[in-house]
Write a protein that binds this DNA or RNA. Structure first.
Lengths: 110, 110
DNA sequence: CAGACTTATCGTAATATTGCAATGTAATAT
DNA sequence: ATATTACATTGCAATATTACGATAAGTCTG
C-alpha cells in the first residue's frame, strides 16, 4: 500500500506521470518559467525570486535535473541552470500527444 | 513543514501544479486515455482494464472529477464517465502556454 | 591557507498520496 | 420487500513529498 503499482501501466504512461510530477508543484513551475525567460539562471536568484529556503530550491532543482528538464553548469562559485531544449521539446511532444487524442463528438458520452 | 507554500506563487502557477498533479499518476493517465478513446466509459470497465481495486479507481476518478477533467453521469445502476471537452481544451491551452515559452538560442545559458 | 561565498546534502518534522478491505448508498430486478 | 449490482466513502497502513535548519563540499579572493 502507498506504493504506485507501475507494473500495471505502460512505460509511456509511467513516463507521463513522472513528467507531470515534475510540473506538479508551483515552485517547479515557477522555476521553469524563470529559466525559460531568463538568461541569468543562478540558484541564488531563484532563492530571492521565489522566497523559499535555499535548501528547498536546491531540492526542486535536483528533481528537475533528475528528469532531465534542467541542466546545471558550474560557473565559478555559482551554478548556472537552464532548460534542456531537446528534453523540453520531447516533453512538449508527449503532452501534445495526450491532448491531441480528443474525443470526437459522437464518442462523447456525457 | 511539508505544506506547499502556495501563497508564494501566482494563481496560474498553482493552477498549473494542480493540473499537473492530476496527470502525475499512471493510473490517472491510463484512465484519461481510456476515456478519450472509449465511448463506454464505465467505472467497472476501468477496474477490469487497469487491474486496480474498485476503491482505488474510484478515488482516482474523484480526483479527476474534482479538477473538472472528468464528468460522471448516472446511467441506471452504473455511472458513465467522460472527459469534459471544454475543460480538456482549457488545460491543453495552459500547458501549451508553458511549452511555447521557449528560450531563444541567445538566451540559452548552457 | 583562511575566510567568504554558493550550492548540495543530511536529518527531521509535517503533510500528502496511494492502495485496499470493509462498509455505505442508491438504483434495479425478482 | 429482499437481493443484486455498481459505485462512493471510510479507515487504515505504507510510502512519498515538502520544507527548512544545519552542515558539508566546492570555488574564489586575498
Amino acid at each position: 500500500m502507498g506504493l504506485t503499482r507501475t507494473e500495471l501501466f505502460t512505460d509511456r504512461q509511467n513516463e507521463m506521470a513522472i513528467l507531470a510530477k515534475a510540473l506538479a508543484h508551483p515552485a517547479r513551475v515557477a522555476i521553469i518559467e524563470h529559466l525559460l525567460k531568463s538568461d541569468a539562471c543562478i540558484n541564488g536568484h531563484l532563492v530571492e525570486e521565489l522566497g523559499l529556503a535555499q535548501a528547498t530550491i536546491s531540492q526542486h532543482l535536483r528533481k528537475l535535473k533528475s528528469i532531465g528538464i534542467v541542466q546545471g553548469t558550474i560557473e565559478g562559485v555559482s551554478v548556472s541552470y537552464c532548460i534542456d531544449p531537446v528534453r523540453w521539446r520531447e516533453i512538449e511532444q508527449l503532452f501534445a500527444g495526450l491532448f491531441s487524442r480528443y474525443p470526437s463528438a459522437d464518442k462523447n458520452c456525457c
